[in-house]
Simulated scan of single mutants.
Amino acid sequence: MARKRNRVRDLNPVAPTSFGEDVKRVRQARGLLQKHLGTATGYSEGYVSKVEKGTITPSMKFAKGCDVAFGTGDLFAEQLRRLMDVDHPDWFAPFVELEKAASEICDYSTNLIFGGVQTREYARALLRSGQPLDTPEQTAAKVDLRMERRKLHESDRPPLLWLVLDEASLRRRVGGDAVMRDQLRHLTAMAEYPAVTVQVLPFSAGAPPASSPFTLLDFPEAMAQPPVLYSEGQGIGRVIDSAERVKDARNRYDRLRADALSPGQSLDLIRSVMGERSP
């Protein structure tokens, strides 16, 4: 396990260099100066220079700006996702791809808000705490990728999303009161989406049917992809397609939903906790 963590971490210094070299190669082939690319992407000439030298991790905004400026489709955006693998380590990447294809997502969160509905500042606080050796640029790149997951649920044709949040995830003070207030406000806004259902498992419900977070994914019939269970621990996660394990998780999820507050009561509790964070 330690070997895998080291390998993922070692990608960080290499990826910006490889990305920057490709940016420089295409920029020069297009006859553009660094200042021209900076203007086109909304960054300074100095920022472009640092990206090309590999001294900073480029943002997703910059990668997409390069694609627009160069007319390369989504080449650089996809390259950044692959090379950096900043928020999607090897054990998480398969889940992210399945999540994009899912028709229904059922998630149980114990201590933290589900990644697909996190706000930018909430995600930044989590990443800074969990990966303190990252540079600010690396953290920013990771936040950008997490926001890509969020877009899935704000699209024109989102998957059905059912969230069961332990009350602890609402009360854990991630990033401070202002960050938590904005996160809870965003959660209430997401709950208004027709495709989203949010329930809170209150402390008063007693012992929960499941002690660890997990996610269930269902897929369109045309995919012929069986449902899967995603289970995550400290620094490791697994996508499980065992019918028996998936069935057991679904039974636990049904019990979680039964023990949780109704969607309306859940929103009331979320707003109450949000009010506690007011200055």
Score class of each variant (00 low, 15 high):
Y47H: 11
S59E: 06
H36P: 08
G65N: 00
Y43N: 13
Y43S: 14
K35I: 14
A40Q: 10
A40M: 09
S44I: 01
K35G: 08
G46F: 03
Y43T: 15
A63M: 00
S59H: 07
L33A: 10
K50F: 12
G65A: 00
G65F: 00
T55F: 11
G54W: 08
T57G: 10
S59M: 07
G46W: 03
F62M: 00
T55K: 12
M60W: 09
P58S: 07
T41P: 02
P58R: 00
K53Q: 12
A63W: 02
Y47P: 00
E52R: 07
T57H: 13
G46V: 13
K64T: 08
D67L: 05
S49R: 11
D67Q: 03
E52S: 03
G54I: 12
L33F: 11
K61G: 05
S49H: 11
T55V: 11
S59Y: 06
G65R: 00
A40T: 10
G65C: 01
Y43A: 08
G42Q: 05
T39S: 15
S49M: 09
L33S: 13
T41Y: 05
P58Q: 04
L37T: 04
A40H: 01
C66P: 05
H36I: 00
G46Q: 11
E45M: 13
A63T: 06
V51E: 13
G54N: 07
Q34K: 10
K50P: 11
K61M: 04
K64A: 15
K53H: 11
Q34C: 02
T39R: 14
V51R: 07
G46R: 10
Y47M: 02
M60F: 09
T39I: 12
A63N: 04
T57W: 12
G46L: 09
T41R: 03
H36N: 12
C66N: 01
Q34H: 09
E45I: 08
C66R: 02
T41H: 01
T55R: 11
G46Y: 02
Y47T: 09
G38I: 01
G42W: 05
L37P: 04
V51W: 09
L33E: 12
I56W: 02
M60I: 13
S49I: 06
C66H: 01
G42A: 06
F62K: 00
I56P: 07
G38L: 06
K53D: 12
E52H: 01
S59K: 09
G38K: 01
K61Q: 07
T55Q: 10
M60A: 15
M60H: 10
T55H: 12
D67T: 01
K53N: 11
F62R: 02
M60K: 07
L37M: 05
K35H: 15
G38Q: 04
G46P: 05
M60D: 10
G65L: 00
K50S: 14
E52C: 07
A63F: 03
E45C: 12
K61L: 02
D67E: 06
G42L: 06
T39W: 14
T39D: 15
